[in-house]
Design a protein around this nucleic acid. Structure first.
Length: 543
RNA sequence: GGCCUUGUGGUCAAGCGGUUAAGACGGCGCCCUCUCACGGCGCAAUCCCGGGUUCGAUUCCCGGCAAGGUCACCA
């Protein structure tokens, strides 16, 4: 069979030479050891924790080696395309401080553009044509129904499913058969003519998993779909070659198609990038655990974390602790060092799937937020409120001085006793609510109304906003003693039956009256911030 | 089902032939204390199973088992 003529019939016209592409996309001039990595999402607009997980690994590896991170959009499947998806991806990643050096809508060096696969059709076809000319690819006219029937037959016989060996019907079509079908106008795809034997295994070094064994591929995979657009596998080989990727860090779900990719690179005569297959983030689902899924776990979309008001750095720190087993220890020793100064290494990445642990994230979040200055905390909360907060919450920032006071005094910012009361911005805004709005409801008092009134009026007659913390507290003790409560905790513990309660109970009444809550930071400080008028008003209202 | 990967407390995990089997989160208890949060101290809890190799296996080998991934003209 004359493959040259066949290729011309299948993909008519002049195509650039393969040499011209090699010249157009030359190897990158980067220092030795610099890694070129990429993020290659499909534009579905949905980006989740798993994407961030891989993104952080790629970002660290590229930038700590003085290399390049680029963004490529895998839009070969138009069914999945969603409007505005690229913007959404970029925004989400920017929030988590993932910076691209080049790529789709990024700017930067355009040498290796275009970054959208649909705009690269000519390159792919050039190489498909070349493979046809070499007899390494052939047209396949099988219909969807025929392929389904084939799969069923194989399943019934308990044989490996797919298009391979004796099942690859169109692989050995005669010249006459091919041209006849072509003349009939039958649609076709182009398949790779595989030369592999899955019984033959090779050792392969994976940057994350270490040495693994990989069987040869024998599937005649589709490389060009009937719409003239390549499949992922083919586009991957072409793009990562011509974008000069050195290291592909991708999800574990790709490990199974590694044999295909290996054969494709070999057939095209390209050197391969190195690979690292990252374990997936898992989720507990009833009795079992499974990979985070876009369909089933919308709460794990990155947008969820922004809405809740998670602190971006905290999420990143958590991802890093999962990503590199020695990160946590390093971070404990260097809590204030920039994250970039951690030496990230692919071989320290976890080999098995890790369960996403919200408790751990929350703990990290508390600690990260506790590192902020009052101004930084304020800016963080304001940014969140502007986007997701209620009108009332936006209003909290009208009096900037008061907000800073609340944050500084009540959170213990700048002091030695730093409080860690909340994990997210939304939680924080709820937490400081009573400073800005008079409580609409009060948690339950644990004493009867008569006692409550007596305690409140006892305090009110003594209340003097110029008292310092100690003076204030001794007055609370006086009120306690006057009403049959123990002024000293020691006394109460020694003989609790002798008293109606302790100072703690007295303070609780005052606390509920002024804030509506049983648990708050230091009450004296709160009353100082509220001011005399507001404090009195709230205490009176509670009588 | 075939193929690939992975199996250390509830979770994330150190460990690489001899350890009281680190640490962190979570849980529980105590202390501090006007409550809470913080902080301090402590407790419970782990080497998937079975064979080898070895004086000795969590660690090495083999075999099971379990979990996950994947078997598209989706990526």
């Amino acid at each position: 069979m004359n493959y040259k003529i066949l290729a011309e019939r299948l993909l008519p016209g002049e195509y650039p030479s393969t040499e011209s592409y090699e010249e157009k996309y030359p190897p990158r001039a980067l220092p030795k050891g610099a890694e070129v990595t990429r993020l290659a999402p499909s534009p579905t607009g949905f980006i989740h924790l798993g994407n961030l997980f891989v993104a952080i690994a790629n970002e660290r590896i590229a930038h700590q080696s003085g290399g390049v991170l680029y963004l490529r959009i895998e839009d070969t499947d138009l069914k999945r395309k969603v409007e505005g998806a690229v913007e959404a991806v970029k925004n989400a990643l920017r929030y988590f401080d993932i910076k691209f050096d080049e790529g789709a809508e990024i700017g930067g060096d355009e040498t290796y553009a275009p970054w959208y696969q649909r705009q690269r059709a000519e390159i792919y076809r050039t190489y498909v044509k070349k493979l046809i000319e070499e007899g390494r690819a052939y047209p396949c006219f099988c219909t969807e129904e025929e392929l389904t029937a084939l799969r069923e037959e194989q399943t019934a016989k308990k044989e490996v499913t797919g298009y391979y060996g004796k099942y690859a019907r169109c692989r050995d079509l005669t010249e006459e058969e091919i041209y006849q079908k072509l003349d009939e106008g039958k649609p076709f795809v182009i398949r790779l003519r595989s030369m592999g034997d899955p019984a033959v295994k090779h050792k392969f070094h994976d940057e994350i998993k270490g040495d693994i064994t990989v069987p040869e591929n024998d599937q005649d995979v589709v490389i060009l779909k009937s719409d003239g657009i390549p499949t992922y596998h083919f586009a991957h080989a072409i793009d990562d070659h011509f974008m000069r990727t050195t290291l592909v860090i991708r999800g574990e779900e790709w490990l199974a198609s590694l044999p295909i990719h290996i054969e494709l690179f070999e057939a095209l005569g390209f050197g391969r990038p190195r690979y690292g297959h990252n374990c997936s983030l898992m989720k507990q689902d009833g009795e079992t655990r499974r990979k985070l899924s876009k369909r089933k776990d919308p709460e794990l979309s990155l947008e969820f974390y922004r809405k809740e008001g998670y602190f971006a750095r905290a999420v990143k720190v958590y991802m890093l602790t999962l990503l590199n087993s020695n990160f946590e220890e390093w971070y404990l020793k260097n809590p204030d060092a920039p994250l970039e100064s951690f030496k990230f290494s692919a071989n320290k990445m976890s080999k098995s799937g890790t369960l996403f642990d919200l408790d751990k994230l929350n703990d990290i979040s508390k600690n990260e937020l506790a590192k902020l200055s009052a101004e930084e905390m304020c800016a963080f909360l304001k940014a969140w409120a502007d986007e997701y907060g209620t009108d009332a919450q936006k209003g909290y920032f009208a009096d900037g001085e008061k907000m800073l006071k609340v944050l500084t005094l009540c959170m213990g910012i700048g002091g030695k006793k730093r409080r860690k009361d909340f994990t997210t911005a939304s939680q924080a805004m709820e937490y400081i609510k009573y400073f800005f709005e008079r409580p609409q409801s009060h948690e339950e008092y644990r004493c009867d109304g008569e006692t409550r009134r007596a305690l409140l009026s006892g305090f009110l007659t003594r209340y003097d906003p110029s008292d310092d913390a100690q003076g204030w507290f001794s007055k609370v003790k006086e009120v306690a003693a006057e009403n049959g409560f123990a002024a000293e905790m020691k006394d109460y513990k020694a003989a609790s039956e002798a008293y109606k309660g302790s100072v703690a109970d007295v303070a609780e009444v005052l606390r509920i009256a002024t804030t509506g809550r049983v648990n708050t930071p230091d009450l004296w400080t709160i009353q100082q911030i509220l001011g005399e008028e507001e404090t009195r008003a709230r205490l009176k209202a509670a009588q």
